[in-house]
Design a protein around this nucleic acid. Structure first.
Lengths: 336, 336
DNA sequence: CTGTTAGCGCGTTCAA
DNA sequence: TTGAACGCGCTAACAG
């Protein structure tokens, strides 16, 4: 309420506001003595600069936006942790926006950013986002954008991703080595770049091993639908002996479907899940899982963005930085 | 870059900036004709008001802060979802800050808020926060604060919590009904209000049933320490037959400890977990779990805060709103 | 109904 | 090394 301003300090010390402003920013053109006086009074009065006045004047908000599809699964949670950690370190603030997997919302959110509310943007696109024109538009207006995880092929900027192709290739060959002959790959939103890469890795392994009865099945975002779908797949006469759950939320689907059908994992069906570490630890019996380095990816994306913001160089490089997932191979303990 | 301002529109239309400003806010003292003209040109020029100029002038940021200990487990993730949903609906923006369970960080974050960066605050305190003086200070300066989940006894404001006492009482009696004679209650940060309530619920059930060998064990935040601790408890000669994992991250601890010791859940040891729905579904065998309504709690907290912000009433009521957790009783399927 | 004037709090000219 | 003046973009108060 009685917020103290630069003016108050100036008056109290018999200085001009300009001097106080400079002293508080450690300007080299201010005497050490007055600098000290000013700073002392500032902390004593618990002075907090008005960020909006400052942003207005400097045309810089020290704020970034993080645009995510959802934050219900732990991948994005951990990413936020990583982002927030480096943001705090660099003195930036983090605004969060969720698209709920809707392109319309994504566009609406981005369209607000030309106002200067944020200095930069970290984004993981919605599953409906097949083209990046709305993102390019923001970039064209001078906003630095870094993708992480879910990127857009047609937007030339820096992208932080995992080795999707390799890891699903590994997952598939792992199942094949365990003797699986018919593997079903469950995916969602096949239009996403990460889905495509993962599917490609799967197909590569399948082709190399000529498992012609294997294939990809697309799930949607409705939990119950997916359970029914998987149950149907598993109750056909030519039941698959291996499943790959290519995103976090599909693991419970497989579990429930198997439970309903009285099928046992991994005796009847072998499963590899893309999941987070914590879930991986709970899974019983211990299963092979692929864990994405969500925290690191968030950290990396933020670090690159802030480095760019601080140096005000040209545009962000159009490069793709790959951070490897971890493959945890766990054997179900003896008991068969 | 060439951001269009209110002035540009005014000039182009031969109006004064003030008129344009009013037209854009649908002021009733502006003619429909000019209103329409202004709005059309605005959308045509893709005008976006500068939020910082507006905030500076109006002394209102349309932004709230959400201060959390961590966002790694799904409780806080879902809470964010709930908060963001109503924030978007009400035209507010959401800044996110993590304390990483550190009181120092919490204080540092709050101390910045007197600058007017945010209009209100939703907070779930760190595990080190035993006193709420730093929060009271912020409130005294006129900032509306709503707690959710982890609150401070000594801060009189609105709090959204779950029925911690009842649900852990239920969890305990559930185990007792299943025949458990020696139950260990695993908790963290006993200083937190939610921990106290949950422990009280446990103790109540224990006393009512005179299970004198049962007790509370405090874990810390180091995953590996906790595993060792639980292993020690489970390998003593007087091994417990029931465990309550009172927060999300303790479930994997129990699983891993049991796995290492070749103990089977629930044959050797019965477990009730406080966990989220998704984890609950994965647990194999299906276990009894208590799931907090994280999304709803976030929604509710945000709704109350925004309602207050819009009406600018006095201080927030000192009331505690309880949203009940869900108890899922699941039986391990036949197979004993 | 509309225009004029005057700030919000800060940082950057320029001049001393 | 410091101060005076101006303006970032927008909105509120006061006229007309």
């Amino acid at each position: 309420m009685a917020t103290t301003t630069i003016k108050d300090i100036a008056k109290a010390l018999g200085l001009s506001p300009a001097t106080v402003s400079r002293a508080l920013q450690d300007s080299h053109e201010i005497g050490e003595a007055t600098k000290k006086k000013v700073k002392e009074l500032a902390t004593q009065l618990n002075y907090q600069p008005n960020p909006y006045a400052s942003s207005l004047r400097k045309r810089k908000s020290n704020t970034i936006a993080v645009v995510l599809p959802e934050v219900a699964d732990s991948f994005f949670s951990l990413a936020i942790n990583g982002i927030e950690a480096v943001a705090k370190d660099k003195g930036y603030h983090v605004l969060i926006y969720l698209t709920h997997e809707s392109l319309l919302r994504e566009e609406a959110i981005l369209s607000e950013f030309k106002s200067g509310r944020v200095d930069g943007l970290l984004i993981s696109v919605s599953e409906e986002t097949t083209s990046g024109t709305h993102i390019k538009k923001v970039i064209d207006e001078g906003m630095p954008v870094v993708f992480f995880d879910r990127e857009c092929d047609d937007v030339p900027t820096t992208k932080i991703v995992t080795n999707d192709l390799e890891s699903s290739y590994l997952a598939t060959t792992h199942l094949i080595k365990q003797g699986c002959k018919k593997i079903v790959y469950l995916c969602i939103s096949p239009s996403l770049s990460i889905s495509k890469n993962r599917v490609n890795g799967f197909n590569k392994a399948i082709e190399e091993n000529k498992l012609t009865h294997s294939g990809v099945v697309a799930c949607d975002k409705h939990f119950d639908n997916n359970i029914e779908l998987v149950k149907k797949i598993l109750s056909g006469k030519n039941r698959p002996d291996g499943i790959i759950a290519s995103v976090e939320k599909l693991t419970p689907v497989v579990y429930l479907a198997c439970r309903d059908l009285r099928l046992s994992i991994p005796t009847d069906i072998k499963l590899v899940s893309f999941t987070n570490l914590q879930t991986s630890l709970i899974l019983n019996p211990p299963l092979t899982t692929i864990t994405q380095p969500a925290f690191k990816m968030g950290e990396k994306a933020a670090t690159i963005l802030f480095k760019h913001l601080d140096k005000k160089k040209a545009a962000l490089q159009n490069e793709t930085i790959v951070i490897a997932s971890e493959l945890f191979i766990r054997q179900s303990s003896a008991k068969k």
